[in-house]
C-alpha cells in the first residue's frame, strides 16, 4: 500500500472544485481500499465524501425517484419507495455482495465498482485496463468469469455490479457535479465499452462527482424479477444475471424491460429483445426468442462459452417469473442470501 494524502470534503462544491492530481473519492471504500492494498490503484489524494449531504431518497413530482450518491446499498434495498415501486432494484441489491459490504457500499460507489478480473487485480499480469497498452492476459487465459458481450481485443472484463443491472432495466439519469458545474448523463451512456481504451471506464471527468441517481418513473403494473445465477448460493459475483420487467395486457406483453449482468463489459440493456417482446404472447417461445436476440452478438473465449446458454436461461426464467408476477420459493430463498 502506498501512502496518500487523506482529506474530508465538507461540501459538494468543495469536493468537486478541488483540483488534485491522481485523486480518488472514497465513500464506503469497499472497492477502493481493496485495490489500493493490492497496489492496483495508486491515488495520491483520497477525498472522503462521507460527510456530504447526499444521503436522501426523494420522490420527485414527475414520479421519478432521486437517490443520493451516499445512500447505502442496504438502505436503498429496504427503502419503502424502492421495495414498492422498483422491486427489481431491491432484489438486485440484495443479490449482491454480503450484508456487511452492503452496509458500507453506496449507490454511486456501486456504479463506480471495478471489475473482478483476476488479471486486473494482479499487478504482475498484463492488463490494458490497469496499465494501458500492456496487453490482456485474460483473453487467452483463465476467462471463465469474463464477458461475452461488449468485449474488445483489448479487454473482456465484466462489470460486476448487480445493482447497475437493476437500474439498467429501470432507466435512470446520473447527476454529476464538476468544476464547471452540474450536468446530467443518461445511465445507459455512463459506462463505456472497453474498445481500444478500456482504462476509460465511464463518462466522468477529472474532479467530477456523482451526486445523485434519478430512476425513471416506475413502469405501471409491471411484474419484475432479478435472477442471479452463480456457482454458490451467496456472496459471489454473477456468472449470468437478468433483470426483467414485464407489463401484460391479458396474455400479451405490452411493455418489457430487460438487462443482463455478469456477461457484459457494462450493465447491459437489451433494447432489441425488449422491442421483440412487445405484442407477443407471454410464453416460453417468446421468452426464448427474446433471449436469442439478447445474446445474438455474444462472443466466447475458451472458458466462458457456457455463459451464452446460461444467460439465455437467465433471460427466459426471469421473464417467466416477471410475467407471472411471482417467484418460486426455490429461487427466492437464494435471492437475498
Amino acid at each position: 500500500m502506498r501512502t496518500f494524502a487523506y482529506s474530508r470534503a465538507d461540501s459538494v462544491d468543495h469536493a468537486a472544485h478541488r483540483t488534485m492530481p491522481h485523486a480518488a473519492f472514497v465513500a464506503g471504500g469497499t472497492t477502493l481500499l481493496d485495490l489500493i492494498k493490492l497496489d492496483v490503484l495508486k491515488p495520491e489524494n483520497v477525498v472522503d465524501i462521507n460527510a456530504l449531504p447526499l444521503k436522501r431518497v426523494e420522490r420527485l413530482d414527475d414520479g421519478r425517484l432521486k437517490i443520493g450518491a451516499l445512500v447505502t446499498n442496504t438502505d436503498l434495498a429496504h427503502h419503502p419507495e424502492v421495495k414498492s415501486h422498483y422491486p427489481v432494484l431491491s432484489e438486485a441489491l440484495l443479490a449482491g455482495a454480503s450484508t456487511q459490504l452492503r452496509n458500507m457500499a453506496t449507490t454511486a460507489g456501486n456504479v463506480m465498482q471495478r471489475t473482478r478480473c483476476p488479471y486486473y487485480r494482479d499487478p504482475a499480469a498484463k492488463c490494458n485496463r490497469r496499465e494501458p497498452g500492456s496487453g490482456c492476459d485474460a483473453i487467452d487465459g483463465i476467462n471463465r468469469m469474463h464477458a461475452v458481450l461488449g468485449g474488445s481485443d483489448a479487454c473482456i472484463a465484466v462489470h460486476p455490479s448487480d445493482m447497475c443491472v437493476g437500474i439498467a432495466a429501470i432507466g435512470a439519469t446520473l447527476t454529476l457535479q464538476g468544476p464547471d458545474g452540474e450536468r446530467e448523463v443518461d445511465f445507459a451512456d455512463f459506462h463505456r465499452l472497453p474498445g481500444d481504451t478500456p482504462h476509460i471506464e465511464h463518462d466522468l471527468a477529472d474532479g467530477e462527482l456523482i451526486t445523485a441517481i434519478t430512476l425513471d418513473a416506475p413502469l405501471a403494473n409491471a411484474g419484475s424479477h432479478y435472477l442471479k445465477l452463480r456457482d454458490r448460493a451467496s456472496y459471489e459475483f454473477a456468472l449470468a444475471s437478468c433483470a426483467a420487467q414485464v407489463v401484460l395486457d391479458g396474455d400479451t406483453i405490452r411493455e418489457a424491460r430487460l438487462a443482463l449482468g455478469g456477461v457484459a463489459t457494462k450493465p447491459w440493456r437489451c433494447s432489441d429483445a425488449e422491442a421483440a417482446l412487445v405484442g407477443q404472447v407471454a410464453d416460453k417461445a417468446s421468452f426464448e426468442r427474446a433471449a436469442d436476440i439478447a445474446l445474438k452478438d455474444a462472443q466466447a473465449c475458451e472458458h466462458n462459452g457456457y455463459k451464452i446458454p446460461l444467460a439465455r436461461q437467465a433471460v427466459v426464467r426471469a421473464l417467466r417469473n416477471a410475467a407471472r408476477g411471482e417467484t418460486p420459493a426455490s429461487e427466492t430463498q437464494e435471492s437475498q442470501a
Binding site: 473482478r116 483476476p118 499480469a125 454458490r232 448460493a233 451467496s234 437464494e334
Partner: peptide, 18 residues
C-alpha cells in the same frame, strides 16, 4: 502455471447459504 484465484472471493467455498 500462475495461480490466479488465490483469494477467498475467486476460490469458491460453501457459504452458510450453501
Amino acid at each position: 502455471a500462475r495461480l490466479i484465484n488465490a483469494n477467498v472471493a475467486d476460490y469458491i467455498v460453501p457459504t452458510h447459504a450453501d
